[in-house]
């Protein structure tokens, strides 16, 4: 059965004056030359980028049996051989995570108020925004390097690193939240003659509280994940254990650590998701 021709049906009330017009989808870049240049530029970049990768095929081939070993290690994770190190690393990670989140949240509240356009202005605003910008720009691990130099190896440097990360993260998002707050509610409290702290507690806090808890819980997840890597540069936590086991090719023990990380991340994610749902 041949498909009925769309042109022959419908619209019978018309004369056949609609000649065969063609149609093309409108392009994102209307100018054909600019469009071609964009495609060409993209292709050229890809070619050059791939060409300058410097792939060492021999070395990669040598990695294949090791990869097999790792994968098999992953199926038989070994929790016992390095059991002591693993437990110690995890306790360190968890304590760093909890403490840094609590301290970070506490510090980020005044910072966020100072970085919100509707509460602060002038130098206070600028200083708060700069603190946020700097602590957000550099990756945690890079910040950790400096704190390790300053405070020595160990979880304290890690703790400070995570606090800085938390403050930058929460400071920015909370400031945005505060800026989006209903001004009427704040005005209403201000109209009762309340002082600034009272305005904050009765006018602002109820509005941002659910979001603050949500973000804090979200940051708890992130801090745990981060705590698993800053150990690589000597800032304590499970990351130190992990990089040691990996560097010694103890894949079964490394797999054990990774499995535990995944399980804990899953757990915290579900728990924090549950709490956030209950709250909002």
């Amino acid at each position: 059965m041949s498909p009925p021709d769309a042109a022959s049906v419908s619209a019978t009330g018309l004369s056949g004056e609609a000649a065969a017009r063609t149609w093309q989808r409108p392009r994102l870049i209307a100018n054909a030359w600019i469009r071609r240049a964009a495609w060409g530029g993209g292709a050229l970049y890809l070619i050059v980028a791939v060409a300058t990768l410097g792939v060492d095929f021999e070395r990669m081939a040598a990695g294949v049996p090791r990869a097999a070993e790792f994968v098999s290690g992953f199926f038989w994770p070994d929790f016992t051989t390095r059991g002591g190190d693993i437990i110690e690393g995890f306790i360190e990670s968890v304590t760093m995570t909890l403490l840094s989140t609590v301290i970070g949240v506490a510090l980020s509240i005044p910072l966020a108020i100072g970085a919100a356009r509707n509460f602060a202005s002038g130098p206070v605003y600028l200083v708060c925004r700069s603190i946020i910008a700097v602590s957000r720009t550099f990756p945690e691990v890079m910040i950790a390097i400096f704190f390790v130099v300053m405070f020595g190896f160990g979880p304290f440097a890690g703790l400070i690193t995570l606090i800085v990360g938390t403050v930058g993260f929460l400071g920015k998002l909370l400031a945005e939240e505060i800026e989006g707050c209903s001004t009427e509610q704040i005005e209403a409290i201000r109209a009762t003659g309340a002082s600034l702290p009272k305005i904050l507690v009765f006018g602002l806090f109820p509005q941002v509280f659910p979001r603050l808890v949500g973000l804090g819980l979200y940051r708890l997840d992130i801090n745990f994940r981060e705590s698993a890597i800053i150990g690589v540069v000597g800032a304590g936590g499970i990351g130190a254990t992990l990089s040691t086991t990996l560097n010694r090719y103890e894949f079964s023990s490394a797999a054990a650590v990774l499995v535990l990380i995944i399980v804990i991340v899953l757990l915290t994610e579900n728990v924090s998701g549950f709490i956030r749902q209950r709250l909002i």
């Binding site: 060492d56 040598a62 990695g63």
Partner: peptide, 8 residues
């Protein structure tokens, strides 16, 4: 560890 150091 698997591929050796480098961009890849």
């Amino acid at each position: 560890i698997l591929f050796g150091p480098g961009v890849v």
